[in-house]
C-alpha cells in the first residue's frame, strides 16, 4: 500500500533568513536578560577602613608568601579574600524554577510524542 506523505511548505529565502535571525535575537535576549534581573549572585565582599594585614585577613605565613609571589598586597587581596557567597533559598522562587523546568520537559515530551507518531506512521504505515 502506498504511504501518504506530508508535503512540507517551501520557504522563501527571506523567510529562511528571518528564521535564522529570530533564533539569534532570542539567544541574545536570554544572554542579556539576567543583567536586568536580580538573580545574579556574585558574592559579597566587605571593606573596612582599618589597616589591612595578612594576619587581619586570616592568612598564614605560607599563604601570605604565595599572595606576594602572585603580586598582591594585603589591600589588593582583601576584596578577593573577603568575598563570600550567600546560599539562601527562596522556596517560592525555587518552586517556580522547578515548575518551569518540569513544565518544559513535559510539554516537549508530549508534543514530541505526537510528532513522532506521525513520523512512524509515514515511515512504516498505519499501526498493524
Amino acid at each position: 500500500m502506498a504511504k501518504a506523505h506530508f508535503v512540507p511548505k517551501i520557504q522563501s529565502k527571506l523567510g529562511q533568513f528571518v528564521d535564522c535571525i529570530l533564533i539569534l535575537v532570542l539567544v541574545y535576549v536570554s544572554l542579556y536578560a539576567p543583567l536586568f534581573m536580580q538573580g545574579k549572585d556574585n558574592g559579597n565582599s566587605s571593606n573596612s577602613s582599618q589597616k589591612v594585614t595578612w594576619q587581619s585577613l586570616n592568612q598564614n605565613t605560607y599563604e601570605a608568601g604565595q599572595w606576594k609571589k602572585l603580586g598582591y598586597t594585603p589591600q589588593q587581596a582583601q576584596p578577593i579574600i573577603q568575598t563570600r557567597f550567600e546560599y539562601s533559598i527562596s522556596w517560592p522562587v525555587l518552586g517556580l524554577t522547578a515548575l518551569v523546568i518540569i513544565g518544559y520537559y513535559v510539554f516537549m515530551l508530549k508534543i514530541s510524542d505526537k510528532e513522532y507518531r506521525e513520523v512512524i506512521r509515514e515511515k512504516f504505515g498505519d499501526r498493524p
Binding site: 532570542l26 539567544v27 535576549v29 536570554s30 536578560a33 539576567p34 534581573m37 536580580q38 538573580g39 545574579k40 549572585d41 557567597f85 546560599y87 533559598i89 522562587v93 525555587l94 517556580l96 524554577t97 518551569v100 523546568i101 518544559y104
Partner: peptide, 15 residues
C-alpha cells in the same frame, strides 16, 4: 539555582 537562578530562568524561557 543557588548561584545563577536568574540565568537559569532566562535560559529556560529561551528554550
Amino acid at each position: 539555582y543557588l548561584g545563577y537562578g536568574g540565568q537559569l530562568l532566562s535560559i529556560m524561557a529561551f528554550f
